[in-house]
């Protein structure tokens, strides 16, 4: 998708969003300090410091292998699951230390939803079961409450109208774009505070991508969203703040307008103008 194909209204909406956020700075959701991450002896992130504002979209851009996904996965302690991973530094969410010894990583992940690059609805479950699985397996049994959350989540993910008549159909009968929105609904159903998205639209066609982007613009009214993307136009369209990573280092972090128009670093400018990467 090129910049020309974006409806003007969306660009305009995004621009006003930035002005608003620069006038009244929103509270900080994630506060990342001196983050270093290794896989075995290979260091992938170097001294990253970053403050992710609440109720806004923060985009993370950079060439492949620059540590974007690793950063995202450190935010909800998913990278703990890799046996060779080692981490130093401090990450807080609304002031609470996510890596404190007293905190159960499972509870951290419950507060922080995640959407992956490839849609991954559970193949053995129906559409409805996929949405409510997080609630059910966390012990919620009341069927009226489940029903309510099912509808709310699917509505928030802009999927309700398309699937309301076949909630018991297999999830894998949906199209690729619908499956990805189903995964978003599944993440929203457990009512997280934050939504992490790892290239959520990179496997989708332009129309499905536009759906997801509209959805993100809607969701940021209630959620803090951190999105990793390879698509710079996408970052420009949907985010208020952008972080540019290169070779495991945070090169620049600023408002999206600044990053894409007057970046402070030469590397950032080269990357966003397509001169490398």
């Amino acid at each position: 998708m090129t910049l020309n194909s974006i409806p003007l209204s969306r660009l305009a909406g995004q621009a006003t969003g930035i002005e608003a956020s620069s006038v009244t700075p929103s509270p900080v959701a994630f506060d990342v300090r001196d983050l270093n991450i290794w896989f075995g002896s290979h260091q992938v992130l170097f001294d990253v410091a970053l403050q992710v504002p609440a109720r806004a979209v923060t985009a993370i851009i950079g060439p492949s292998g620059c540590g974007k996904s690793t950063l995202l996965r450190s935010l909800n302690r998913m990278h703990d699951l890799v046996p060779s991973a080692r981490m130093e530094g401090r990450i807080t969410l609304f002031g609470e230390d996510l890596y404190s010894k007293k905190i159960d990583p499972t509870l951290v992940r419950r507060r922080i939803g995640m959407v992956f690059q490839k849609s991954n609805p559970f193949p053995t479950m129906s559409i409805a079961e996929n949405v409510t699985v997080g609630l059910r397996l966390n012990g919620l049994r009341k069927s009226d409450l489940l029903q309510e959350r099912l509808e709310t989540s699917l509505r928030m993910a802009a999927l309700w109208d398309e699937v309301k008549d076949r909630l018991n159909a297999p999830a894998i009968s949906l199209s690729g774009g619908q499956q990805q929105r189903l995964c978003i609904a599944r993440a929203l159903a457990v009512q997280p505070e934050v939504l992490l998205m790892d290239e959520p639209a990179s496997a989708l066609d332009p129309i499905a991508t536009a759906h997801i982007e509209d959805l993100i613009l809607d969701l940021k009214k209630e959620f803090t969203i951190v999105i990793v993307t390879h698509n710079m136009q996408q970052a420009a369209r949907i985010s208020e703040h952008t972080a540019f990573f290169y070779l495991g280092k945070l090169v620049e972090f600023d408002t999206t307008t600044k990053i894409f128009t007057t970046p402070a670093q030469k590397q950032t400018e080269d990357y966003v103008t397509g001169r490398f990467g």
Binding site: T106, V108, R109, M114, F116, N120, F122, L137
Partner: peptide, 27 residues
Amino acid sequence: VPNSYREAAYALGIARWKIILHIVVKI
């Protein structure tokens, strides 16, 4: 069973034994 299903379940804050029993083994 692809790891992406395990990851999806972890990201929902589901306990490990429940993920294994209700999702991985079921698949």
